[in-house]
Amino acid sequence: MQILEVRSLKKSFDNTEVLSDISFTLDEGQTLSIIGSSGSGKTTLLRCLNFLEFADSGLILLRGQKFFDANDAADRSDKAVREKTRHFGLVFQSFNLFPQYTALENVCLAPKLHLEKGSKEEERAIEEEGRILLDQMGLSDRMDHYPHQLSGGQKQRVSIARAMAMHPDILCFDEPTSALDPELTGEVLRVIKGLAAKNTTMIIVTHEMSFARDVSDEIIFMDNGVIVEKGPAKDVIDSPRNERTRQFLENYSRNA
């Protein structure tokens, strides 16, 4: 079943068009990866989906319903954005964990602040779920550690748990392993594969081509703010139809 439809999304920064006419769909439980060279607009696309930027024009539909209309000012109000943003989660390249909170507190902060009244039982239930999430991330012995006491890979796994705790419909990742030492990327990629195996709906911007091939149902190749090619993961990586995709993948495997 289709969960997300992006229709003709456009975004410019000071007269430079960064996203030109982006359209795609995503089915529930599927994993979509976005690849493309640096500066092609991948981060901007994720930021538009998470309302850290507002698209200049275009539509976002969720489960077939109009969700965000760039031309409707009401969709940009603080309150509307707060409501909408909960349907999407975003895992940042640089983690952005809150340094003054432990791993568990990082995971539980937002769910607790969203409680209407916040009874002791509700808070305990949130903490219980937080523990389960961190446990799934392989961090059961790191729950009470502060971010500065964690390795990069552990930090990123905490930030994945933090995003999961809000139960987003769609979880987005912006190069989740790019800030990590090479030997730490594996533990993060494994966790994301685990999520894919449980049919979490995900959009992943990544430079890890073999990971993208393994984990994704579909892959989008972006260049200069347009979707050049979209197709089943193995087809795009193994036998790209478009010349630009082929060139990108060739450069990539030469440098890797």
Binding site: F51, L52, D78, E83, T85, N96, F98, Q100, H114
Partner: peptide, 24 residues
């Protein structure tokens, strides 16, 4: 990124300031 992480988690501006930024 601290503000953005708070916003993406659906926190309000004042929640971000008082619960995330201020102590730092």
């Amino acid at each position: 990124g601290q503000y953005e992480a708070g916003q993406v988690l659906g926190l309000s501006r004042s929640q971000v300031f008082f619960r995330v930024i201020l102590l730092q």
